[in-house]
Design a protein around this nucleic acid. Structure first.
Length: 658
RNA sequence: GCCCUCGUAGCUCAGCAGGAUAGAGCGUCGGUUUCCUAAACCGAAGGUCGUGGGUUCGAAUCCCGCCGAGGGUACCA
């Protein structure tokens, strides 16, 4: 039941007399821009009139003549240059509502042709704790899975974990040299993370020490260059000024880089213990890489260690996913594909796609300067190779029709090359999409970091959200008063905590999902947990009020759902709410079509707004006759179900009290 | 150098298979409680949609130039 589709179908029939491709023009029906124009508007007569050399208004008149929507709409009206305005008949709207209320799927029809869709998202490195950078992929990916699944597709969520890269060499090196046995015995994962950080820190130290002199020299020459150019560049010469500007920004970058490296060196130098370690391990970076190579080469000891570490790391990740309510159907990490990589390169070579260039095996895609490197000079494979092996596996073993990669926009070029290569390689029947997203920024407009400059750990982020939410929940509950003004808090400590979890995590997820995923967004605690405005809380609150009304009205959702007969919409606020409810499937489709959960958040926000406006204007329980009361209760109950279902598709939970 | 994003109200952002007077939240100002959760509702002020051109009956939306911000760019993923 999708009213927009029904209208489009009717228009397509009528349009058949006027054009070769009626669906193209039927698609130009959309919700009315202004409610005064009605509920929907058709914009097709202007372009079609132009194409056919007919006056658009005349064409509109003839089209309306031909059009049969008498069972759905009031008589269509022609306005302006040739818009056709449509207003749904109340009886039709009421029928739709009745059907929706009786339907477990809320009137959303499952896809006629379900597709096998693989959604590749989250994909953290197991060696390091998850951080804020993983948030978007995880939250957006999960929502897309839920949406597509609800729409009837066969969705496989796959966590393509980084479990085979250089970071494991670092952990192994750390384990062999710096292990704190007690700490490892107590809780292995933090100890492994510490080892990773330590080895990384020591490697960076040596790298910085080595490169700093050259960088300082470079800075000096650049500065001299800048000075001389500043002296000579003609003020009116635009390109000279532009070059100057570029040089200045390059200098800034260089200074920042040097400062950050100096900081790394200083940190170690300031700590006698760390300095001693650094001195004792001058070749740590190379040795760690060697450990990785040994692991890949099948070295017994390193394989044993890997087998020992991996389950523990995965378990730590699982804690975060459990808390976020996220499940994966598969978690086939990079290691899973390791023994297929040689074959992939061989096959690409046989097909003449991979060629040697500069010692590496490369696929060159026309129109791209950079090659797609599938095997490095040293013989090692790259993530390009793994990604190709993964595509082959998903195509052949999972029968994929569609593969979505929910990954950072910065990897756009990689995916462009990957998809082009895969298509040439024989997988052109699969629809590939890079569902890209922008960076999470701090208030300073730089990638979100802690005050000391470290990346923000995901678990601590979640903890903080819940703790902030707990304060808000407590404050709200404490402020509840009865008619006499006496405090009447109604939530016990345990309930408050449960609600804080729902509100806090919902706030984080919603803040992410309600932005257009393509744009960067600024992370702001106060906004995401604000008790006012376009937040998860607003919707969760609307839901809690629905439950509150049913409780006060002493009816259950089941009882209301069992009532048959149309749901009347006499008041304007009732009608607006009813129309919004009927657009649920439109909203889901829009969100799924281009993988934009923000289309759904927008819908839910509008719905929650319509619902609270309805509350303000239409009393449900008080001062109403029995029929009105029942009718409004059904409207409220249906709204609650749609909100809960919509939020669920965003991965956000609700509570029946707040 | 080449390539890719982005520039919309004081702030944060929607809108971008071209359509009627450009929307929302926050903030500001004003109003609403004998009434089902005021975590609410109603109203007002606030915009040369970076800029200059072009296509069109019609452009925030499509094309080109310019300005500004960010990102990527051969062996890290």
């Amino acid at each position: 039941m999708n009213i927009l589709h029904q209208l489009q179908q009717r228009f397509a029939l009528a349009l058949a007399d006027f054009t070769e491709d009626p669906t193209e023009f039927a698609a130009m029906i959309r919700p009315a821009a202004d409610t005064r124009f009605g509920d929907f508007q058709a914009n097709c007569c202007m372009p079609l009139g132009k194409r056919n050399g007919v006056n658009p208004r005349e064409l509109a008149a003839r089209l309306v003549d031909k059009l049969d929507v008498s069972d759905l709409c009031e008589p269509p009206e022609i306005a302006g240059p040739g818009f056709i305005n449509l207003k749904l008949q109340d009886e039709f709207l009421q029928q739709q509502l009745q059907h929706m209320a009786a339907d477990q799927r809320l009137g959303v029809e499952p896809a006629g042709e379900p597709r096998n869709i693989i959604v590749d998202f989250s994909s953290p490195n197991v060696a390091k704790p998850m951080h804020v950078g993983h948030l978007r992929s995880t939250v957006i990916g999960d929502s897309i899975c839920r949406l597509l699944r609800f729409l009837g597709h066969n969705v496989t969520s796959d966590n393509h974990i980084g479990d085979w890269g250089t970071q494991f060499g670092m952990i192994i090196y750390g384990y062999k040299n710096f292990l704190n046995t007690d700490a490892y015995a107590t809780d292995p994962v933090p100890e492994l993370a510490r080892l990773y950080r330590l080895v990384n820190q020591l490697s960076d130290y040596h790298a910085a020490k080595e490169s700093l002199p050259a960088q300082r020299e470079r800075l000096a020459t650049r500065q001299a260059e800048l000075q001389s150019q500043e002296a000579t560049a003609p003020a009116g010469d635009k390109s000279a000024q532009k070059a100057l500007k570029k040089l200045r920004s390059e200098l800034e970058g260089l200074k920042e880089e040097i400062a950050s490296q100096e900081k790394k060196v200083a940190t170690i130098d300031a700590d006698a213990e760390l300095q001693q370690l650094a001195n004792a391990h001058p070749n740590i970076a190379r040795l760690a890489r060697d450990e990785t190579a040994k692991l890949h080469g099948g070295d017994q000891e390193n394989r044993t260690l890997w087998n020992q570490f991996l389950p523990q790391c995965l378990q730590a990740l699982q804690r975060v996913y459990d808390r976020l309510g996220i499940q994966f159907d598969l978690a086939l990490g990079e290691s899973y594909y390791d023994d297929m990589l040689g074959e992939v390169v061989g096959d690409l070579q046989n097909k003449g796609m991979a060629k040697e260039s500069g010692g590496a095996q490369c696929v060159f895609i026309e129109g791209n300067e950079a090659p797609f490197i599938v095997q490095k000079t040293d013989g090692a494979y790259t993530y390009a190779t793994t990604d190709l092996a993964t595509i082959r596996y998903r195509a052949e073993k999972l029968n994929a029709d569609e593969i979505l990669y929910v990954v950072d926009a910065r990897q756009g070029e990689h995916f462009k090359l990957l998809f082009a290569t895969a298509e040439q390689w024989g997988y052109s029947r699969i629809k590939f999409a890079h569902v890209s997203f922008g960076t999470v920024m701090g208030q300073d407009r730089r990638p979100y970091k802690t005050r000391s400059g470290d990346t923000v750990g995901l678990e601590s982020l979640l903890d903080e959200a819940v703790s902030r939410a707990a304060d808000i929940v407590a404050a709200n509950d404490d402020s509840k008063i009865d008619d006499a003004g006496n405090p009447t808090p109604e939530l016990d400590a345990e309930t408050r905590q449960r609600i804080a979890e729902i509100v806090g995590l919902g706030g984080i997820k919603y803040a992410d999902l309600h932005h257009n995923r393509e744009s960067d967004y600024v992370f702001d605690w106060d906004k995401m947990l604000a008790t006012t405005g376009d937040t998860a809380t607003y919707m969760q609150y609307a839901y809690a009020r629905v439950c509150g009304i049913l409780r006060k009205g002493d009816v259950t959702a089941e009882e209301l759902q069992a009532i048959d007969g149309p749901i009347r919409t006499t008041e304007p606020a009732e009608r607006a709410l009813a129309l919004r409810l009927c657009r649920f499937s439109e909203a889901l489709e829009a969100a799924a079509n281009d993988y934009r959960p923000n289309q759904l958040t927008q819908y839910l926000y509008d719905l929650a707004g319509d619902l609270t406006t309805f509350y303000a204007n239409c009393p449900v329980l008080k001062g109403t006759d029995a029929a009105t009361r029942e009718n409004r209760l059904r409207l409220v109950e249906l709204s609650g179900r749609v909100i809960a279902q919509g939020l669920d598709l965003l991965g956000i939970a609700v509570s029946d009290r707040m």
